[in-house]
Structure formats: structure tokens, C-alpha cells
Design a protein around this nucleic acid. Structure first.
Lengths: 226, 226
DNA sequence: CGCCGACTGTCACAGGGGTGTCACAGGGGC
DNA sequence: GCCCCTGTGACACCCCTGTGACAGTCGGCG
């Protein structure tokens, strides 16, 4: 569940957006000023920040710049209509997207999800599934920091599954993706490889939580941070 | 303040990125073609090059290769295509990183800083991998203070590996980077050189801790302080 | 509620493929 | 001309891998 920090001084807008975003499945922390926002940011380390430009004290641009000095998390700016100047200055101060007020909650939600998705792709060199971390550059998989020493086939299987987290893949599909050949007829090949992979990846291989069996279909890798 | 050279033929993208990068604290020179880029590079000696792949005349890969013949400054490739092929070709032509267009200025900035940080570590007179110290200025490698007397090929292999610590490189990639030729078909060339390098570098060559084998892929130099 | 069938988990084993290793000959530099 | 480096092929080894058999489990249906 994404954890957002909403920095907005207008009480009505802030509580309204907080409620809406919470209903849409986000965890939300709020701040009513730039100072509070920066403090909360350092304390709570949100995944994304929604930031009003017009703030008392230090304004949104300045908050954005200060955060950017040290961190690269996504920032969405909220700005009043009309001033187009804001868009340019906003993107140049390091924001990832901007939204014009008044804003429909589901529009903001869509932007949030888009920016988060973008971030995932960009950092796709490594992805984490609980304590299991896949490093595509090093071609290694670690669990609690320890190298799992996956064999080539196990690694390819896990990589293919992780390219489509949450999606069930049939044995037929996996054979094509991992083994690159069609295999007509029944074989325990995929099952055997999944078993070996589970033995290394899962906490309790007999009760898998990462690589789930979808009965009658195949297997599925549960998405990160389940 | 880092001094960048941006080579990009699209006027809008070039001026946009120039503005953004300047605001993020870089000095930026620009060129609109590969020829101009090479000329400016020789004249101005930038710290880093951001290089578009699709250029009129000599393309980005070729620019990259020509620069690499004489210099080791960081190069980041920009490309519109997201094909994996390009990533491979790009890394093999000697680039340090690879960014897909359209790119957020802050993402590019982050990659630039990351590559520069990596470069600082490398160009600092000593980067240490355990007791093995690579001195790029002196072009020597020492272990526990003693010169290892690496042969030219062994040294190039180690330098190429150490330019991408933690990243697995295939035999194919290493052949292009170190030997500068494509080699179709199987050969024990890379393995043999790795073996000779291990014999000098590793504490226990039969149980290597620095130059790891990634089965089914190639080799990888484990990052410092591991 | 219990049985039955289909599907999946598990295991041992034999074959094969990828990697480590070595010796040797050619070649290039000093 | 000498010597060291370098590329090549052969070979052995080890681990991976695919297979088949069997046990276990789940769901459906009577």
C-alpha cells in the first residue's frame, strides 16, 4: 500500500483529499505547512509527496528543492489554475508531475499511480518481494541479504514470473518463456523447477507465500509488498 | 561543478535538457550532431557526456566507440527505443549507463550523479576490493601492498569488470569490451583469462570471492566492501 | 459427509551441458 | 633471438536438469 505525504494548508482541501485518497487505498500523512511537511518527510519517509505550491512560510517550490537535495522520491505539485509559469518552475524545481486545482480525487489518484508506476520501471534494476531481492544487473537473488545461488533455469523462471507480478502464468506459457520450446503433453518439468525455486526462495517451502499455485492454471508471483 | 556535454539533434529536447540540467547545477555544452560532439569533446574535455543514439551522420554508438578508444570519461546513452538489444549494444560500445526517452530531467540528473559518483571512486587513485587495490593512475594492481604484475589483457579485463562492479557481464560482452571483436561460437578464451586473473587476484583461486562466476551468464566483480 | 478423480508436490537418478584447468604453439615486443 | 604473453583445443569434473513414479491434496459430486 503506497504511503503518501500530503502537504496543503487549506483545511477543507486537505481533509477532503486525505479522505478520498485513503478510500482509494493509500496510507496518508498530512501536514499544513512547508516546515511541518519537511519534518514529517524526514520522520516518516513516505513513498510519494503531494505538495501544494502556495504555502505560508517556505513555499512548495522551496520544499521540493530541499527534498531533492537528498532524495529522489516522486513529488506531485498542486497548483492553482491560470499561472502557467508555475508548471515550468515546478518541473524545474524537481517535481515529477503537477495537478491543477480544483482537482478531482480520482484524477489525482490516477496521477499518483502513474508516477509510482513510472518510478517502479525506472528502478527496475532491482525489485523486492518481501525479504527476497532480485538484482537484474548482478543477475543475483538475495534473501535477507544472502545470495540464494539460483541455478540458471531457476533464475530465468523467477525473472519471467517477476516480469508479470500478480499474473498467473500457465505451465505452457512458462515453458515457452523459460525453456523456449513448446511442450505438448504433460510433464512435471515446470513443477519440479518451481519446487526447487521455492526451496530456496520461500520461508516455508511447503506453504509458499511468494510463488503461489493457481490450481488448474499454473503459477503466480505475488506482487511486492503484499 | 560537473561539466557535461549533451549531444542531441532534436532542438526541443536539447534545449529543454540543457535548461533543466543547468538549473540542477551542471555546466552544459551542447552539440547537435555526432561530428560536432566529437569536436567539442576534444576541445572542451567535459566530465561526462550525455549522448543520443539516433543522430544524423555518425550515430551515438559510433561516437561512443570513438571516444572510448582514447578516453574513459562517463557516457550516458539516450535512446527512444526500449529494446533490450539497444541496452546490450550500448553497454558493449562502452557506455556507462542507458536512459530511455522521454526522460524526466530529475531522472537523468540522478543517473548523471550516480555515474559521476561511481567515476570518482574509480578515478580516485585507489579503489579497493578487499586487499586488492586498483590504481588507475599508475595502472597497477596490488594485493596486500605487493604489485600483482598483471599482463595487459588481464589488466584490461579487470578494469572493464571494475567499471561495472556488481554487474554480471556475459562472455560476449567481455569479448567486445576487452578484445574488441565479436566472437561467434564457443571459446574458452574468456574463461582462460579469468582463470589467470584469478590465480593472481584471489586468495583461493579455486574458491573465488572477487571475480564470481554467474552460471549461464558470465562473470561479475563483487563490489567493494562486500 | 465421504468417495473419487484430477491435479500438484516431492524425490531419486541418469544424462548432459557448462565451466575450470592445463599444456602447447604462435606471435609480438624488447 | 629470446622470452613472456596469449589464444586454442582437449579433457575432466561437477552441478544442473529433465524424467518418471508415487504420494499427497484439493475440489466436485453423489
Amino acid at each position: 500500500m503506497p504511503f503518501l505525504l500530503l502537504i496543503e494548508d487549506d483545511d477543507a482541501i486537505r481533509t477532503g483529499l486525505e479522505l478520498a485518497l485513503t478510500r482509494q487505498g493509500h496510507r496518508v500523512a498530512t501536514a499544513a505547512s512547508g516546515e511541518d511537511g519537511l519534518r514529517l518527510f524526514k520522520e516518516q519517509r513516505p513513498d510519494l509527496i503531494v505538495l501544494d505550491v502556495m504555502l505560508p512560510g517556505i513555499d512548495g517550490f522551496e520544499v521540493c528543492r530541499r527534498i531533492r537535495r537528498t532524495d529522489q522520491l516522486p513529488i506531485i505539485l498542486l497548483t492553482a489554475r491560470s499561472d502557467d509559469i508555475d508548471v515550468v518552475v515546478g518541473l524545474e524545481s524537481g517535481a515529477d508531475d503537477y495537478v491543477v486545482k480544483p482537482v478531482q480525487p480520482r484524477v489525482l489518484d490516477a496521477r499518483i499511480r502513474a508516477v509510482l508506476r513510472r518510478g517502479e520501471r525506472e528502478s527496475s534494476d532491482s525489485s523486492a518481494y518481501g525479504s527476497v531481492v532480485i538484482d537484474r544487473a548482478a543477475m543475483t537473488v538475495t534473501k535477507d541479504g544472502q545470495d540464494l545461488q539460483l541455478t540458471p533455469t531457476e533464475l530465468r523462471l523467477l525473472l519471467e514470473l517477476s516480469r508479470r507480478p500478480g499474473q498467473a502464468l500457465s505451465r505452457q506459457q512458462l515453458l515457452r518463456l523459460v525453456w523456449e520450446h513448446d511442450y505438448l503433453g504433460d510433464s512435471r518439468l515446470v513443477d519440479a523447477c518451481v519446487q526447487r525455486l521455492r526451496a530456496k526462495v520461500e520461508d516455508v517451502p511447503s506453504a509458499p507465500t511468494l510463488i503461489r499455485t493457481v490450481r488448474g492454471v499454473g503459477y503466480r508471483l505475488d506482487p511486492p509488498t503484499g
